[in-house]
């Protein structure tokens, strides 16, 4: 099958004699037999290490869990600097975990969690930090400092956990460049290989923000939530 891969300045087309295999197997075939200079990242081959996210025909996928098809166009993730070919630099993206305080504030002993408590954020803690959501997020076109989908999902993971002793601090911290900057477009949900919806998590964080007295800053700033003609804008 023929696969087009974005390299430095142009797309290069490779003819690979494989069928019904993952994109990662195609990339390995190219690297090992056709062109050893091709750069891409991979690790576990089983969709848990988050190394091999790329875009195929414009949509983010894990190369190890996507079955390649003839004519596919493979490109690196968006919103991150490209190191080379399909390899991107994740430093700034991962740095948002720190900015968003995506961790448990304190070490706590003997907090009893029920089966139900654990279920509350079981899905969010499935995140593999592949950055598919980060690449798909349109907010970065207008705000480069947006904390972003995976970091905010991580914040929800901890805020929703009984072991978090200071949820208010977490909520305070995500008001700027955080929950209200999201457009709720749902692009992150559609590309998550783990079935996580950062959009839904951001909505939950918004609801929690409201409980702590915050409101949507774009809401009511000019017109109290109504359009200039007086009709509701929501």
């Amino acid at each position: 099958m023929k696969i087009s891969i974005k390299r430095e300045d142009s797309h290069e087309i490779y003819d690979v004699p494989l069928q019904d295999v993952t994109l990662l197997e195609i990339l390995n075939e190219i690297k090992n037999k056709i062109d050893a200079t091709l750069a891409y990242s991979s690790g576990c081959r089983s969709s848990v290490c988050g190394s091999c996210a790329v875009r195929v025909n414009g949509k983010e996928v894990l190369a190890c869990s996507y079955k390649a098809e003839d004519g596919d166009v493979v490109e690196p993730l968006l919103n991150v600097p490209i190191e080379r070919d399909l390899v991107v630099n994740m430093d700034k993206a991962y740095g948002f975990n720190s900015k968003a305080k995506a961790y448990q504030s304190t070490i706590v002993q003997n907090i009893k969690l029920s089966d139900e408590d654990e279920k509350r954020n079981a899905l969010q803690s499935d995140c593999i930090l592949c950055s598919a959501c980060y690449s798909a997020c349109p907010v970065y076109a207008v705000n480069k400092e947006f904390l972003g989908p995976f970091s905010l999902t991580r914040v929800w993971r901890y805020v929703s956990d009984k072991r978090e002793e200071n949820p208010k601090d977490k909520i305070d911290n995500i008001q700027m460049d955080g929950v209200w900057d999201c457009t709720l477009c749902n692009a992150c949900t559609l590309v998550c290989p783990q079935g996580i919806s950062s959009k839904a998590d951001i909505e939950k964080l918004r609801a929690r923000s409201v409980m702590f007295g915050y409101s949507d800053p774009s809401f009511g700033s000019f017109d109290g939530g109504f359009g200039f003609d007086g009709s509701p804008s929501f």
């Binding site: 448990q104 070490i107 002993q109 029920s114 089966d115 408590d117 654990e118 901890y158 956990d161």
Partner: peptide
């Protein structure tokens, strides 16, 4: 295990927590 639990590892739980 207690240490992992104290830093937030989301272990699965039994019905009795």
């Amino acid at each position: 295990i207690e240490w992992l639990d104290s830093i937030g590892v989301p272990f699965s739980r039994t019905k009795d927590g």
